[in-house]
């Protein structure tokens, strides 16, 4: 095994022996190698704790550290960009037996990942509401209108009230009265320089996902109504418009000149 390969394996896995070929003129080789092992593991644990602060808080420092250590061993980063590390952490948590008693933990991680992604998402500028208003003059074309959403817009449907849980943990004092067993849908977006998280009816997330997958306004609204009979299209549009989340409009090809 080549030196860097052995070194790499040994820093990621504390069970592996210290690689051969290391020396120290005046010190103890193994305890010095341990500095690298600790730097690597601690550095990656910190990166995860930073992206998943609510998960870390929910399970406590020790549990988080050991869970993260196992994840790191299984899925070391494949990119030098640490803000993207841990995309698969939520799935790992979902399969992590010792976390079974907190069934909402994986979705909490998914929500936190969406927040980080929204924070760093590409910049895009909202369409002028007057351009939207102009569309009202040709109502028969509205159904075929395609709305481009801001790259930071994301959705999550969970069987647990993870948006409420997330919100409670943004504050030092935990709010009383959380019932996590209720399903909750969440919209995440970046408004200006801030990431905002909204607990919404399930029709909103169905609507947004349909728009994002290329459906026009009419079919997306109908899909949302199918998912949620109480879906309120005007409120859903108001949420998007007031948060600068509609960044482009394009009419469907058949009504283009």
């Amino acid at each position: 095994m080549r030196l860097q390969e052995a070194f790499s394996a040994a820093v990621l896995d504390s069970q592996q022996p210290c690689p051969r070929g290391l020396v120290s003129r005046n010190g103890h080789v193994e305890s010095r190698f341990a500095v690298y092992r600790n730097n690597v593991q601690k550095g990656l644990i910190n990166a995860l704790a930073f992206s998943y602060p609510v998960v870390a808080r929910l399970v406590g420092e020790y549990f988080f550290q050991e869970m993260a250590r196992l994840f790191i061993k299984k899925s070391p980063p494949d990119s030098p960009i640490m803000s993207t590390y841990g995309v698969r952490f939520a799935d790992f948590i979902g399969d992590f037996e010792p976390a079974r008693s907190l069934p909402y933990l994986a979705d909490t991680a998914r929500l936190e990942r969406l927040c980080v992604a929204a924070y760093h998402a590409a910049d895009a500028w909202a369409v002028d509401p007057q351009v939207l208003a102009r569309m009202l003059k040709v109502p028969e074309s509205l159904g075929q209108l395609h709305l481009q959403l801001h790259p930071g817009v994301a959705t999550l449907d969970s069987p647990y009230a993870v948006a409420d849980l997330w919100a409670a943990h943004q504050n030092e004092e935990l709010s009383q009265g959380l019932d996590l067993s209720l399903p909750q849908s969440t919209v995440v977006l970046r408004y200006g320089l801030s990431v905002e998280v909204f607990a919404v009816r399930p029709g909103y997330t169905a609507f947004i996902r349909h728009l994002q997958s290329g459906h026009a306004l009419g079919p997306a609204a109908e899909h949302a109504l199918h998912v949620d009979p109480y879906f309120d299209l005007s409120q859903a549009l108001a949420l998007l418009i007031t948060h600068d989340a509609i960044t482009d409009l394009s009419p469907a090809p058949e009504i283009s000149p």
């Binding site: 399970v59 406590g60 549990f63 010792p98 849980l165 935990l174 009265g177 959380l178 996590l180």
Partner: peptide, 12 residues
């Protein structure tokens, strides 16, 4: 390992 589960205590 046992998670601390801080939010369990707040459920109602």
């Amino acid at each position: 390992l046992v998670p601390k589960g801080t939010c369990d205590k707040t459920a109602s």
